[in-house]
Amino acid sequence: MNNKAQSIKYRVTLTALWGFTIIYTISFLAGKQLFPFDKWIGALFKPVYAMMFGG
């Protein structure tokens, strides 16, 4: 029972990881920015940075 639950968790994790990797790599090779992490992070912290150092 315990083993089975673990193996499901394992499969989900591994599949999710591979899935994300493949999608990201394909988006990279195709030259399309599907996950602009830097833009998201930048948008999140820009106000704080501007508050601390005045832009």
Partner: peptide, 29 residues
């Protein structure tokens, strides 16, 4: 990832992580 998945070994995750690191390195900026 090993902890999240509850798996015994961490080796299976190395390959996807490596590929992801490589594509991120090139693609993020």
């Amino acid at each position: 990832l090993k902890h999240i998945s509850g798996h015994t070994s961490m080796r299976v995750f190395l390959l996807p992580c490596a590929i992801l690191i490589w594509s991120m390195a090139n693609h993020i900026h």
